[in-house]
Amino acid sequence: MPIRPENLHRYPRDWNEISARIRFERAGGRCECTGHCGLTHPGGRCPAVHERIHPDTGAVVGLTTAHLNHTPEDENLLAACQLCHLRIDHGHHRTTRSITLAARAAAAGQPGFLAVPT
């Protein structure tokens, strides 16, 4: 997942090295998700492997590093395929989208609302 420019200051300077260590040294190039995404994986762990075809999506896997608590300042990290990462972040993305849309509406002088999903 790309880092939003306004969040760059929240990441350590050596983020690329930390991310690579998590994805390739600790995880061995394989998704570490064991159900964090809400799916039940065969054998208990997602079978997706970096740069191979994902067994569920048919897309080439680009292993990412997910923040399990959505806080870049700590290292609660998981190597995750795109599918698992997007599913892990789904609720967070819904919340931040609502906040962004409300801020845009307010800036445009339009009545907006802040709908935080439950």
Score class of each variant (00 low, 15 high):
R45V: 13
R52A: 10
R23F: 06
N69Y: 06
A66C: 12
G28M: 02
A102H: 11
T100W: 06
E73P: 00
G29S: 11
L39P: 00
T95D: 03
S98M: 08
E32C: 03
H54A: 09
F24H: 14
G28W: 05
G62H: 13
A115Q: 11
A80L: 09
C33K: 07
T118A: 15
C46M: 07
E25F: 01
Y11H: 14
G109Q: 03
D56E: 15
I53R: 14
N7A: 08
R4W: 01
I53P: 00
P47N: 12
T65R: 06
F113D: 11
G44Y: 05
Q82N: 10
T65I: 01
A107W: 01
L101A: 04
H41K: 03
C37T: 02
R23E: 05
G58K: 07
T100G: 01
C46G: 03
F24T: 08
L63A: 04
C81I: 05
P42G: 02
N16A: 15
R52P: 00
R30A: 10
S19H: 05
S98H: 04
R104W: 06
S98F: 07
E32R: 01
P47G: 14
A103E: 15
S19D: 09
R52K: 14
N76R: 13
L77S: 04
C46W: 07
N69S: 12
N76P: 00
A48H: 04
L101M: 11
T34E: 14
P42K: 04
R97M: 12
P72Y: 01
C84K: 11
L63W: 08
P72T: 02
L78E: 01
A20V: 01
P72L: 00
R97A: 14
N76S: 03
I99R: 15
P5E: 15
P42Q: 04
C46T: 08
T71M: 00
C37Y: 03
D89K: 02
I99H: 06
P12G: 05
A20Y: 10
W15I: 00
I3A: 02
P2M: 04
H36I: 02
C81R: 07
L101H: 07
R4F: 08
A105S: 14
G62C: 05
V61L: 12
A102K: 08
M1E: 09
D74V: 06
A105R: 15
Y11V: 03
L83G: 05
T40E: 15
I53K: 13
E75V: 02
H67D: 04
N7K: 09
P47T: 07
D89P: 03
G43V: 05
G44P: 04
L83P: 00
R23S: 03
R52N: 11
R104M: 13
E51C: 06
L101D: 13
H9T: 04
D14L: 01
A103L: 12
T64C: 06
G112A: 09
A80R: 09
C33P: 00
G29Q: 08
I88R: 03
A107V: 01
G91A: 14
H36F: 12
R13A: 10
